[in-house]
Design a protein around this nucleic acid. Sequence first.
DNA 1: CACGCAGGTGTACGGCGTACACCTGGCGGT
DNA 2: ACCGCCAGGTGTACGCCGTACACCTGCGTG
Lengths: 232, 232
Amino acid sequence: MVQQVDGARRAPLNRDRVLRGAVALADNVGIESLSMRNLAQELGVVPMALYKHVANKEQLLDGMVDVIVGEIDPPVPGADWKVGIRQRILSARKVLLRHPWASRVIESRPQPTPVVLDYLNSMVGMFRAGGFSVDLAHHVMHTLGSRVWGFTQELFPASPLPADPEKQEAMFHEMAARYPHIAEIAVAAAHDEASVVGRSCDDQFEFEFAVDLLLDGFERLHQQGWTSANRS
Amino acid sequence: MVQQVDGARRAPLNRDRVLRGAVALADNVGIESLSMRNLAQELGVVPMALYKHVANKEQLLDGMVDVIVGEIDPPVPGADWKVGIRQRILSARKVLLRHPWASRVIESRPQPTPVVLDYLNSMVGMFRAGGFSVDLAHHVMHTLGSRVWGFTQELFPASPLPADPEKQEAMFHEMAARYPHIAEIAVAAAHDEASVVGRSCDDQFEFEFAVDLLLDGFERLHQQGWTSANRS
DNA sequence: CACGCAGGTGTACGGCGTACACCTGGCGGT
DNA sequence: ACCGCCAGGTGTACGCCGTACACCTGCGTG
């Protein structure tokens, strides 16, 4: 049933093959359909075989995160801190857009792996190399929050509009009556992009807007010699 | 087995009682131990009885979010936009600190409920009342991201130190060697608070640092008459 | 040739969400 | 006084999940 079609025996599994298989499967069928049983089947193996290579599902998820982090570009060497950080974050973002499930998985990990710590450490290092005090670098990392990973907390994903244009119209009027401020944003955004109502806004622009606002704020504090001692 | 000890029959369930029971149970035993079966038992009822009041577990979670949002203070009427927004967000934060599971649940909802939309709408309204253009209000909401809910993406929770102080020492040296930038932050933070190594930093301060940096940035853009037309 | 051990297997358990058929007690209409 | 309805609660069962544990198998080494 599970055996190979071609005569050659399946190459033996190893941790890396398992992790990459898991990433691929999550990419294809969604993270919510990634189960040990599922993954085992995909790899042509019985579920329990996986446990020879990962301790349990949590460790599998940790390993998947490590694979993803490995896809992020390394820091550009001689760059100014601001452009360097920006590039790195936007590289992370590109990776996360390739693996839409990854942000949720990253958020769900209770402890960082060494690979993740390496990434964060090198990020802090870029601020330090730019002359930031330990103090400021610290708070600035907190402020970036999930954006060091290239994603922002989505307030909600693009709403799937009803196909029927009459229902669309009705829904729109209800929105406008009940949530006028949200509605006018939706209208403006739709107009900007000459697209249908409800089309979600330009994600990339929103992301860069936020990152740049933050980086500019950081720069200002840095130049002012900000210290956490002047906590008001 | 399940019947009441006192002669009086259990008051009949209703949606509200189910939701509040679920919130209480999550508070007590943690969200990961909240199951339909568990909750039913707590309410003195058979699991399937819950389905007369909520369609499924997803709707239960939606309802729990609504309960939490209901605990956030309403906007202070005559306040300046900046202090008004700040107060509201810090109120949300207080609520979320009472229900530590709530941030993860909010993040996990695929669609916002009407109650959530009301909250977001009123938040946008505060920016609009402060003179923000629709355009700027829009992007500014995105920038706040999960902070409108009073939480920030945690890079990782406080690490539980090993009890043995020798192991602590060893771990610390390994950290310092491998992740020097992270280590120096840890040292500085520990020194600030005269606490043990690894003690997590002052969360409230980090949060307010970020919110204030953002609000200041928003104010600057607002005063400059910023428009998304000048997208560089 | 025997042995060990890494890698793969089979079976089983307890937990989950929930579909579906059923029961029951009180209330409104006649 | 009776009947029928139906909201609310029950019982059973299914298919999924993660994974403990005992087992097998075949290769590399002594």
